[in-house]
Nucleic acid binder design. Structure first.
Length: 274
DNA sequence: AAGTATAACAACCGCCTTTGT
DNA sequence: CACAAAGGCGGTTGTTATACT
């Protein structure tokens, strides 16, 4: 029997179901078996692949393991600022179409993006005590979170430019950008040149936040609506008007979450309590 | 140091669509 | 055209690592 160029011993469906199928975490041996088999015969036809490779797994399980973990081009590690921005932007456009979103983040899987959304974005919605799909939260993302990400990417790019002069290899600049994006070491290992996204959004690198002239219509609006200078200071003692904030929300947590300050919170309170 | 809570990630499940017969 | 199998996708759950008390 030939399966996508493969020749293997046919097994009936009954025989397959009779065989005890393994479930749960994959072992190193299973990974090696799958990788070696795909290396020799290519991917696809997952059910027969699983059978022919001698893996006691469903075709679906093999496919998932390969696509989400074993593929050589799969990119692992922290989601960078640029990737976060792109995820937020694309999700606002397409919703939970994870695979579609993943197509725009090379090396990232739909599963990874989906997990990011659930663990990070929905966490923030929970902290704000609002639904992640609510207009309020979407506005918060669009008008506060995303601009903050842009600012941070710009700041990182500027820092990278400054130090690039002292770094000879081109790759060092990209590495430095990610390191500069945060004092945390977590970014250093995962590098995505900011220029990729600056091109995508076509915004100028400028440290003056108020001068950002976004070509993207959404970000133009962001700048109009959420110009930090337009925010008035929160009245003293006005912090618990219906919204409870974890201190990590603005004081701590990892660098990717640390995009908020008291003014943001006050502003959000005003918006959400309307 | 131990116990608990939370975050992050990997994997499975069910449904829908596509493809082959 | 109808049916079955396979593939793909989004939702959900389980496990492990890490942080916190």
């Amino acid at each position: 029997m030939e399966v996508g160029g493969r020749v293997c011993d046919p097994k009936t469906e009954e025989e397959t179901t009779m065989m005890d199928l393994r479930r749960g975490p994959w072992t190193v041996e299973e990974d090696l078996t799958l990788v070696n088999y795909i290396d020799k015969h290519g991917e696809g036809r997952w059910n027969s692949l699983a059978r022919c490779a001698g893996l006691k797994r469903t075709g679906k399980s093999c496919r998932l393991r390969w696509l989400n973990y074993l593929r050589p081009d799969v990119r692992r590690g922290n989601i960078t600022l640029e990737e976060q921005l792109l995820i937020l932007e694309l999700h606002s456009r397409w919703g939970n179409q994870w695979s579609k979103i993943a197509q725009h983040l090379p090396g990232r899987t739909d599963n990874e993006i989906k997990n990011y959304w659930r663990t990070r974005v929905q966490k923030h919605a929970k902290q704000l005590k609002c639904d992640v799909n609510s207009k309020q939260f979407k506005d918060t993302m669009r008008y506060l979170w995303m601009p903050r990400l842009v600012e941070r990417i710009q700041a990182a790019a500027a820092a990278a430019n400054t130090s690039t002069a002292q770094m000879s290899p081109p790759t060092a600049a990209a590495d430095n950008l990610s390191a500069a994006a945060s004092s945390s070491d977590s970014f250093a290992a995962q590098v995505s040149p900011a220029s990729d996204l600056t091109d995508y959004y076509n915004y100028p690198v400028n440290n003056n936040n108020n001068d950002i002239n976004y070509q993207n219509q959404d970000y133009y609006q962001v700048n109009q609506v959420f110009n930090p200078d337009s925010l008035t200071s929160p009245p003293s003692g006005s912090f618990n008007h219906g919204l409870e904030f974890n201190s990590q929300w603005f004081d701590g947590g990892d660098t990717t979450d640390n995009l908020w300050n008291s003014e943001d919170i006050w502003c959000l309170q005003q918006q959400f309590n309307m």
